[in-house]
């Protein structure tokens, strides 16, 4: 249970320790990728709590969402339309829904105990 949290900490440490930074014009892509990743992560946690977790769906969804979000942002930049907002919106809404579901499940679990 604590291993994923440890992974998060390790990742953050790795990111801060390595002297790696992204040029300004690409920070958009990374931010949307982060959003997609978070969405997938919370989706995974919810699925796990609902016992409908599927390994393949989770991993493939993670990468696919990131790539889709980044390419949407890329397309937006080239079309002159802020398409990445669509991704932000979609992922944001889903993030909230997922977190809400997780909260409800946790509350329900706690109250049944």
């Amino acid at each position: 249970m604590w291993l994923p949290v440890l992974g998060l900490v390790v990742g953050i440490l790795l990111g801060f320790m390595s002297n790696f930074s992204i040029p300004d014009e690409y920070s958009n892509y990374l931010s949307i990728a982060v959003l997609a990743a978070l969405d997938t992560l919370f989706g995974g946690i919810r699925a796990h709590l609902q016992n409908i977790y599927d390994e393949k769906v989770f991993v493939s969804g993670f990468f696919f969402n990131i790539i889709l979000a980044a390419s949407l942002a890329f397309l937006g930049v080239h079309l002159g339309v802020d398409l990445y907002l669509a991704a932000v919106f979609a992922f944001g809404v889903r993030l909230f829904q997922n977190i809400a579901v997780i909260r409800r499940i946790l509350i329900a679990k706690n109250s049944t105990k």
């Binding site: 790696f20 930074s21 982060v34 990743a37 390994e55």
Partner: peptide, 25 residues
């Protein structure tokens, strides 16, 4: 165990991305 590993893997990537994004922004 497999589930935990994949979660760990993905949280690690997310952490990395977050850190980089933080540093960049």
């Amino acid at each position: 165990k497999k589930k935990t590993l994949s979660f760990t893997f993905i949280t690690m990537i997310i952490g990395l991305m977050l850190a980089i994004q933080f540093r960049s922004v």
